[in-house]
């Protein structure tokens, strides 16, 4: 055995190649540039979070309405949030469009129309940025206590799965009436809502069939890449990137699809933490 190892060692006999002076210089420049960009990105990104929190806390009513006693009274905070949640839902019920309600307290995800719950789904898993959990009642009211409208909606599936069919010229041109529903197609259902209160809602549909997993990962990779690229370009210009707190929800895939297709292009959303 020992002989065998010696023989393998002799065969490999790896020697670290020596770099020329020019290559070494290029490498060092690359290291420094990447390190500077990363540092700049880190500092500005963290500063963006603090800036947002400061902006909310510096609002006059937030300053005046929040006492230390209120901040520490969990029963009071729970009731305050409950009232905000009900008020927002009532406000949305006055409109004619289908809306989305996200109740993280009860892990429920539902669509409503005129105050009627059309479908309720269980949130299987979720995580919200700590930024949102740290808001005290008056600040919470500013961020989540009002209805929000989605400014941007991006999805891995189409809103209306239209099938284009040309009208036949005569009876001979008519296709046979067999209904063809393609059940073999793998469709990962993921969507992102960017709300006008600067909160990003990421919805991931999960399905026991693992075939759509890769498509889903690809979707999120490109979302994160786009976000990072935008933020990087801002930080390189010494500008603070926009900070949008993220709430990520994992829901059954069928519900994620039904909800996405039911909602209008710019849906109203209310959230309870």
């Amino acid at each position: 055995m020992a002989q065998l190892f010696t023989r393998i060692k002799m065969k490999i006999n790896f020697q670290k190649p020596t770099l020329t002076g020019r290559s070494r210089l290029i490498l060092r420049v690359v290291y420094v540039v990447l390190a500077v960009i990363a540092l700049q990105y880190t500092v500005f990104s963290v500063a963006a979070v603090r800036k947002r929190m400061n902006a909310i806390n510096s609002q006059i009513d937030v300053k005046l309405l929040t006492t230390r006693a209120v901040k520490e009274d969990t029963a009071y905070i729970r009731l305050y949030k409950e009232k905000d949640w009900l008020e927002t839902r009532l406000q949305i019920a006055r409109t004619d469009s289908i809306s989305l309600s996200v109740d993280l307290l009860d892990s429920a995800f539902q669509i409503e129309l005129k105050g009627v719950v059309l479908k309720k789904s269980k949130i299987l898993d979720f995580d919200a940025d700590r930024f949102l959990c740290r808001l005290h009642p008056a600040a919470y009211h500013h961020v989540l206590g009002k209805q929000a409208m989605a400014d941007t909606v991006i999805s891995s599936i189409v809103k209306q799965p239209l099938i284009i069919k040309k009208a036949p010229k005569d009876t001979a041109d008519v296709e046979d009436g067999t209904v063809m529903i393609d059940t073999s197609r793998v469709e990962a259902v993921h969507w992102v809502l960017k709300l006008d209160n600067q909160i990003v809602l990421k919805i991931e549909g999960v399905d026991p069939d693992p075939r759509g997993w890769w498509t889903g990962q690809k979707f999120w990779f490109f979302q994160n890449l786009g976000q990072a690229a935008g933020d990087l370009s801002r930080t390189m210009l010494f500008k603070t990137p926009e900070y949008c707190p993220v709430i990520r929800l994992v829901v059954p895939e069928a519900d994620a699809r039904a909800f996405y297709r039911a909602l209008p292009f710019k849906p109203l959303v209310c959230i309870r933490l």
Partner: peptide, 13 residues
Amino acid sequence: LLTVSNPYPEEAA
């Protein structure tokens, strides 16, 4: 990182 200085008043109406 989110601990931003925010003095709370003792009483608030």
